[in-house]
Amino acid sequence: MSSHDAKAMRPGAIDPPMPLAHHFDTPGQQAGSAKFGMWVFLATEILMFSGLFLAYFVVRMLYPEMVLSSHELLDKTMGGVNTVVLLTSSFTMAMAVRAAQLGDQKGVVRNIILTILFAFVFMGVKYVEYTGKFAHGIFPGKYFDYVAAGEYAREHGHVLAGKPHIFFGLYFVMTGLHGVHVLAGIGVLTWVLLRARKGEFGPRYYAPVENVGLYWHIVDLVWIFLFPLLYLVR
């Protein structure tokens, strides 16, 4: 039973009614349930990625030299650009939620479109990175081409130590799973965009925008850790 009156509604703001499923008593109960469910789901996402991060730390512990020498082959600048892109998309997502809270229909649509665009930019940069790696024999695991990758490293003044196929295997799994989450994010964002264009969201009903936003922020959070660990840390 939140007070909508307290919120400053802009003139011209649109406030469509909230659809209420039969098994809920109040809109607040419905929205609260959805949001709580989303947070619990985010907890599962965090735990799932934590397994990958733990694998990374273990590999780093077992083969410190290998990890440090291998990561030099990753392009810090591309990683940095992607970080900025993803942070900005998180910002536009937050703005979309805010627009929905204020009943600014156009703002919702505009910001979700921006978020989707940034997501595509992110995937584009990833595509360039992946194909660049593949071109030099840097494949995950047993497909790793030691000869080609070794030459590529020497050209750039590095020496590959130990078993870099493990590092790159992990790199592709971590960024790959993250990429799958970005793609899933594009999917759900598109769904929300279609609904937003129909004018379904407003101050009384914006739970889908908010929950998709929460998911999108988690995708961002994972990247915030992936970036320094894979690209930067010496």
């Binding site: 939140s2 919120k7 607040g28 929205a31 970080t83 900025v84 900005t88 910002f91 805010r98 809270q101």
Partner: peptide
């Protein structure tokens, strides 16, 4: 009995947070 917390943050806050994130990156 507050069923769901709703809070609209001011625009400036979002800009500040984004700038901080960029600086930290």
């Amino acid at each position: 009995a507050v069923e769901i917390q709703e809070h609209v943050s001011p625009l400036s806050l979002y800009y500040k947070v984004l700038s901080a994130l960029f600086v930290l990156t």
